[in-house]
Each structure stands twice: as C-alpha cells, then as structure tokens.
Write a protein that binds this DNA or RNA. Structure first.
Lengths: 215, 215
DNA sequence: CGTATCTTTGATTTACTTCAAAACTTGTGG
DNA sequence: CCACAAGTTTTGAAGTAAATCAAAGATACG
C-alpha cells in the first residue's frame, strides 16, 4: 500500500458526504483510502438502502465495478478523508509489472470478500446484541491494525448508518448499546466508544478463544 | 471460461458432499464449476454455520483464500459435479500473459462481490417472503444464463441449506413457499419449482421495472 | 437562541423462532 | 417386494425478539 502511495500521484481530499462513485456509473478506477472513512450502499427499486460496507485507511473501494465495469453500489465519505485514485489503466500496468503489488491487490480482494462473508454470518445467524458485539470487535481490530486505540474510538458513522448495516432499526441498535452499557461491556457516549470488558464482548460476538476460523 | 477450460487439464469429477477445500486450509488454487453446484459456508466458534453462497457452472470458488492465503470458508458439492482446478502458479502465469483471461477473472471477482452485496441487501432489508422471492429471481436468472429453463428448475440444495442462506428457520421457509403457492406465484413440490407469475415474484423481490441498480 | 439532526426511551404490534408432531420420501436389508 | 429407519418437508400452537409508532432529550449549527 505504501508502494501504491508512492507510485500514484492523484490523491484527492474529499469532504464529508462526497460521493466517490455512484451505482450505475461506469468503472473509472479504484480508490485506496488514505485517511478518514467511507460507506458503500446499494438501493432497491423501491428506495430501500443497504449499507454494504465501511472502509478505513488501507482498504480498497471500487471492486464492485469489476463485475461488468459498472458500479453496483455508491461510495460516500463519512468524514473529511483522502484517497489514492488508481485508474484502470494504472491498475492493468501495475498488476502485471509489479508482482508485489499484484499480490497486495489480491490480498485486498480476498479481504473484501471475507469481510462481506463475515457480515453475512452476522446478519444470518446473530441476534441484535451479538451483531453489535461482532461489529465492534471487528472494527476495533481494524482500527488497531491501523495504529489507533483498540479500546477507545469514535464511530465515524451515525446510528442510522450503523443500524442499517447491522440490519436493525435505529431504536433497536440504541437499546443494544444501552443494554451493553448496563452489562458493563462498554460505555457509549454518542459516537464515542470505550470497550471495558473484552471477554464479554468476544463471548457475545461468538469470537471467544479465537478458534472461529480454524479448521 | 471456455479458454480456461481448454488450457487447464485437471478437471476432477466430485461426488455429492465432497469438500473442495476447508476453512483453515492453505489456498491451493481456484476452482471453476463446470457442472453441478456447490455451497460455501463459514462457522463460528460455537458451531453456528452460515452458508455464504451457492455456485453454479461458470462460477469461481476459492477467492476467499486471497485474503491471507488461507481459506475462510468450506466449499462442498451439493450434487455430483465437476470442476476445473487452477493452481495459483497457473493463475499467476495466465493472469499476466493472457489479458482476456485476466479480464474474465476480474469479471468473476466483481460478480462474486456483487452477489455477496445483493445477499447483504436481502438479509438486511427484506422480510422472509421477499428474501425467498429475491433468491428465486436471482437463481432463475443465473440458471437461464447457463441455458437452463428460467420457469422450471430443481433446487440442488435442501430446505435446510436454503433457509440457512436466507437467514430463516426451515419452518419459516416452508411457510413462505406455501404462502407463495397460495398466492399463485409458483408451485413447489419439494425441490421442484415452477414460477407461474413473474410480475408478482419481481414485485415481492423489489426488482420490478428492473431499475434496481441504476444510479 | 432556535431549528434541524441525532439519539434514547417507552408502549404496542408483528414477524419470526421454537417446540412438537405428522406426512412424505428415500434407501436398506430381510 | 415389503418393512423399517433416517432424512426431509410441511403444518400447528405458543413464545419472543425486533419493528413500528410516538415522543422526549441531547447536540450541533446557522
């Protein structure tokens, strides 16, 4: 990713709510998040929306356009952010010439797919409180990998977006936060989250003992 | 995909229930489905499972291993099937040398991601009956693209698997089939499905007028 | 300071799960 | 070929988690 950052010159700053690409638009290229955060969402014909992912520094936006060179989701900044813009021409060249970069891109593709599958598991199998626990566990891990604190962080998305992502009503999500606070798992002041009891959180998220993915 | 089929020699036949790769196993390569069908699933530490996808001829299995070269889901044959096995060495070579094949692989990657996002939308936004309608609509489309009948087909998966994929209890799924039969949308005799009323089905699936993905 | 947005809390309704059991299908050995 | 066991699918009744409806606090913002 640092390599990519060195090669590519086009690194636009984007304001909160800026749309990087829209569903239905032709694929121009990919975007690596440098700072800030983004959400992607899909819509149905009757206006319902589903947030399909949140993206943090080092993660790649735009792979949904690989299907038929048309984006199937919309990518929007959750806060002031910056990205590294990679045209498809760049992508093609770099992908063939630099094997390290190719592997890095393959890694990011796999990570995207695994993240989506993890969310499918969350939506398909878990109750509300478990979904929130799984999300916070996953988010904390990703933030920690990026050098942020794992125990204390600020959510960059409003409750509305988080509830949508977790397939819950905003009111239900709020109740889950309250319940987890009562249980002493965390404190939540609006966007500010402190994780107090990792054991309880991991148990709720069914990630205890870390053997969830080992065969 | 025909190109791939011509280049690669290793095309094993697999029996029903055969496991192509397991969660936790090192990534050996990718598998293109030639005939039959597969499911992939993930497990939590406490034994809950979530089916993350069904795969039909022309679709690619194994991309989940790109993340860190370890599979995060298990792939299992739903019926007697055959695949085209592609080692990672083959993949690397072909990917760089044949641009058409590279584009085809990128297309399949994008398709996988879009399929996952569509399922996220289904699980996150829809009620039981709508989920089933969305699934049948999607399945019918995929089967039609492969030369099968869009109106009449046999499900290769048991109710149990379909219910799991759709995030429902088996009993609920069964009731949804019954209700749709009563409504005259389809007839369902165990695995055999006849779609009778496409308008109703698409309306239920929120795919009416086909503008679900535009802008 | 007042308006719009975001978040929380309470009461009611609803869709789905769970538990229980019957009907049907398939395969196996007598 | 039939009997029987194992698996699959359907149906019914009761319980529950979450959605919806309604409204009040809290925070940011012009």
């Amino acid at each position: 990713m640092e390599t990519l950052d060195g090669i590519i010159n086009h690194k636009p700053q984007v304001e909160r709510n800026t749309i990087l690409f829209r569903s239905g638009a032709a694929l121009q290229g990919l975007y690596a998040v440098r700072s800030g955060s983004f959400k992607t969402y899909r819509s149905t014909s009757d206006g319902a929306e589903q947030i399909t992912g949140f993206y943090f520094p080092g993660e790649l936006l735009g792979l949904d356009g690989f299907g038929d060179n048309i984006h199937r989701c919309t990518a929007q900044a959750l806060e002031s952010s910056s990205v590294c813009a990679l045209t498809m021409q760049d992508f093609e060249k770099l992908c063939c010439k630099i094997s390290g970069l190719r592997h890095q891109l393959m890694h990011l593709i796999g990570t995207e797919i695994n993240q989506d599958h993890e969310t499918l598991l969350t939506l398909g199998q878990m109750k509300g409180e478990e979904r929130l626990a799984a999300f916070l566990n996953n988010l904390s891990l990703r933030l920690e990998q990026r050098g942020f604190s794992a125990n204390e962080f600020n959510l960059s998305m409003p409750r509305h977006d988080l509830a949508n992502y977790l397939g819950l009503a905003v009111e239900t999500l709020s109740r889950m936060f309250s319940r987890m606070q009562d249980e002493g798992v965390l404190t939540a002041n609006r966007r500010n989250i402190h994780i107090l009891d990792w054991d309880k959180l991991r148990t709720l998220a069914h990630q205890d003992q870390g053997c969830s993915n080992n065969y």
